[in-house]
Nucleic acid binder design. Structure first.
Lengths: 337, 337
DNA sequence: CTGAAAGCGCTTACAG
DNA sequence: CTGAAAGCGCTTACAG
């Protein structure tokens, strides 16, 4: 048996060369016409090429163009956890906005792990993606290198380690403060605050903003009940942190949960122990997923406009690509009772 | 000003040629060594190349390889609605399984629209992706063409229009029957069934399996209360269908919801009208998202093992690529009370 | 109005 | 053990 011919062409896929031969013109001409640059060719040529394209069923292969132009039209999103509806919504809105701008999105789930994030960053660089969207990124070696080299990156939700670079998110500190105001307005003067032990800077800002405001309102810091638990899943964190808190101090009159998922965890405990929300304990969280209206009517939340993140993210990318200095989009949040 | 030099190289990105020059060897040699084929080179050469790679910070660009080999290592997932936690879970598990197999996943949200699905199929072909995962696909022109041409496709959740081709999902008819058994075991002999007016074949199978079994158990078909509503969002569908049903017939003792999202919608109505679940009305649904345990403890569901979909999907793709006939993975579901 | 040619970054059969 | 050369599919400055 003879050695196989070198590279396998996808069966039935015609290239520019095929069309050129079919239409009896050069590849240059075909390329121009296929790309809509019809002004420079005679009507007869255009027609001939069109016919050949239709006859052969030609579809351009972006790989060739990408290699030549140095532009792949691909953007990578690295997200900490797709199973979290908040992240899924951000992914969906970003994907839609990218599509409108003519890009496609590769999606990677880092599970909030630095090693996986680095693996993905390397893989995406190999794919020659043109931009990166890091949703709740974690500090990592490779990320530092990317930032140092000036790679186009938009940070979402959690700012970069240095706070520099393009960013889309909400004012977490203010969101925490607004949650505090709400609990206070409901007469909860000694609230608990529930958060993950190893929280991101975003989570810490929420908690800090909350505590600051409660103190400003008149309750000394030590009387704010801190409930924390380690772990990656905020659902679990909420459940366990609340369980420990309740075991040692009983149910507080109100709790601020650093994320929706934490609130879901707290509520599960309430459900299991028969505590009523909000009658026994008022629950307020930050995120405000659209699902809450359906599944968690007992929850008051500070809503971030996740559906608007996508367009803002794409704006930031376009800015960077245009050579402008990176900017920060702080989107308005809204407490919905 | 002079015309710019032709194609922009990403700044600071070294190519194989750079390394070859740096190490004083040919590109062939560099290519082999970089790809781990070190056996054929002298130790000294390998060392020299390694040093050059490190010095220059060389990172391979897959575009070149993809063009040459005709393999991009990219798979496209077209999903009907990322905002649905079920789809998000499938996306997450598929992405993880693809990564382990050395592939990356482009994610597209079709919003259950044929025109968008076609647009994406075209865009993905342009990207020269090697395989397609269609989660809840909708019949469309381009999809027909892809199937006709033998493009590697795995259908997920909803089988293809003809039922042919690789598939990963559950036995929807049996799932419906199991839901019927559950309601019957709880003493609900005249249940309602809630579903979208324009349901997919998968949804219709669930409803059909449910009704068949109820009839087999002894309730004549006409006494099964049908509640349907048009619309794309199952949340809305559930809410409106239940509202209409309740308006004309009051709350039934139990309802089978064709999907989790429909159940969420029904529950919202129950919450608003003060009906208690399950005391007044038992709710059972098909899907069984992991979120239910946290947010919908009132819901009994037939759980599909979505976290296992990813590995099965990748298996199907590998099969197709290996030239084997496409197979169907019907994964076991389980009713969890 | 049109085409020849170079080149994007890689791989690989082949020759030595 | 190593390299020259062809080629994957495209784009584009340049020449005519």
């Amino acid at each position: 048996m003879k050695t196989m011919a070198v590279p396998r062409r996808l069966p039935g896929r015609a290239s520019l060369a095929t069309i050129a031969a079919e239409a009896g013109v050069s590849m240059s001409t075909v390329s121009r016409i296929v790309n809509g640059e019809t002004g420079r060719a005679s009507a007869a040529t255009v027609e001939r090429v069109r016919r050949a394209v239709a006859a052969v069923g030609y579809r351009p292969n972006h790989l060739g163009r990408a290699l030549r132009r140095g532009e792949t039209q691909v953007v990578a999103m690295l997200s900490a956890n797709l199973d979290n509806p908040v992240m899924a919504t951000i992914a969906a809105s970003t994907e839609a906005a990218l599509r409108e701008a003519g890009y496609v999105m590769i999606l990677c789930d880092t599970h909030d792990r630095a090693d996986l994030q680095d693996e993905y960053l390397r893989a995406m660089r190999a794919q020659a993606v043109q931009g990166y969207v890091l949703v709740s990124s974690v500090p990592s070696r490779e990320l530092d290198a990317f930032v140092r080299e000036g790679t186009p990156i938009v940070f979402v939700g959690r700012p970069s380690a240095t706070g520099a670079g393009a960013f889309v998110g909400i004012d977490n500190r203010q969101a925490g403060a607004d949650a505090a105001d709400y609990l206070w307005s409901r007469g909860v003067t000694e609230p608990a605050v529930v958060y993950p032990t190893q929280g991101s800077s975003a989570t810490r800002a929420r908690v800090a903003g909350f505590c600051e405001r409660i103190v400003a309102l008149g309750t000394p810091e030590p009387r704010i009940l801190k409930a924390e638990a380690p772990g990656l899943s905020h659902l679990d964190v909420g459940y366990r942190a609340a369980r420990d808190l309740v075991a040692r101090a009983g149910w507080p009159r109100g709790m601020m949960c650093a994320s929706d998922q934490i609130a879901y965890g707290v509520h599960r405990l309430a459900h299991e122990t028969g505590a009523r929300v909000p009658d026994d304990c008022v629950l307020v969280s930050i995120d405000g997923s659209a699902l809450n209206a359906w599944l968690a009517p007992w929850l008051v939340s500070v809503q971030a406009p996740f559906h608007e993140f996508g367009p803002r993210i794409v704006e930031r990318l376009l800015e960077i690509w245009a050579g402008k200095p990176p900017t920060r989009s702080i989107l308005p949040h809204r407490l919905t009772a």
